[in-house]
C-alpha cells in the first residue's frame, strides 16, 4: 500500500510541476513533509544538497531518495515511475499531435512567438543562477573561463564541467 501511495503522491507532484525543478520543490515540500509526514524538514534540506550535487533533475533525485527511505528499492522505483508518468503521457500526446500539425501555418505562427519566449526564459535562468553561484573571485574566474571555453572552443561541455570540478578542488583545497 505504501508503494502505491508513493506512486500516486509523486504522480501528483509530476503532474503539477510545471516550470522546472524549483516549482517541484515547493510541491514536494507540501506533499511529502506537510501532508504525508514522510520526511522532516532537516532531511528535506539534506536531499536538496544531494540533489544539487548529483546528476539528474531534482524531481527524479527527490523521488528516488524519498522512495528508498520510506519503502526500500521498490519504493524508489515506484516513486520515480510516478514522477515521470505525466511526462510520458503528455509529451507523447503532444509529440504525436505535432507530427501531424507541425506544418500548419497557425502552429508555425505560434512557434515563431514561442521561440523568443523560450530564449528569454533561459536568459532569465542565467541571471538567477549567476547571482547564487558567483560569490567570490575564484568562482567568477571559473565561470568566465568555462564560458570562454564553451563559446570559443570546440571542447565538449562535459569536459568543461570536469575541468571546473578539478579547478574547484585546486582552488579550495590546495
Amino acid at each position: 500500500m505504501m508503494i502505491l501511495q508513493l506512486y500516486l503522491t509523486f504522480l501528483k507532484i509530476g503532474l503539477f510541476g510545471i516550470g522546472g525543478g524549483y516549482v517541484m520543490l515547493s510541491l514536494i515540500e507540501r506533499e511529502i513533509i506537510e501532508v504525508q509526514g514522510w520526511l522532516t524538514l532537516a532531511e528535506f534540506v539534506d536531499i536538496l544538497a544531494i540533489a544539487e550535487m548529483t546528476p539528474g533533475p531534482i524531481s527524479i533525485n527527490a523521488a528516488t531518495f524519498i522512495g528508498y527511505t520510506t519503502a526500500g528499492f521498490w519504493g524508489s522505483a515506484f516513486a520515480t515511475a510516478g514522477v515521470i508518468t505525466p511526462s510520458i503521457i503528455l509529451v507523447l500526446l503532444v509529440a504525436t499531435l505535432l507530427k501531424k500539425f507541425y506544418q500548419n501555418k497557425w502552429v508555425q505562427a505560434a512557434f515563431s512567438g514561442l521561440r523568443p519566449a523560450v530564449i528569454s526564459l533561459i536568459a532569465g535562468a542565467t541571471i538567477f543562477v549567476a547571482r547564487t553561484a558567483l560569490i567570490d573571485i575564484s568562482s567568477i574566474l571559473i565561470a568566465l573561463t568555462a564560458f570562454a571555453l564553451l563559446v570559443f572552443t570546440r571542447l565538449h561541455p562535459i569536459l568543461v564541467l570536469l575541468l571546473s570540478a578539478v579547478a574547484g578542488i585546486f582552488l579550495n583545497i590546495y
Partner: peptide, 19 residues
C-alpha cells in the same frame, strides 16, 4: 564540496552559453 565549488560557477557558464 571543493569539486562543487568549481562545478557551480561552471553551471552558470553553461546556462549563459545556452543562451
Amino acid at each position: 564540496q571543493a569539486a562543487f565549488a568549481g562545478i557551480r560557477p561552471a553551471i552558470a557558464a553553461l546556462i549563459a552559453a545556452a543562451v
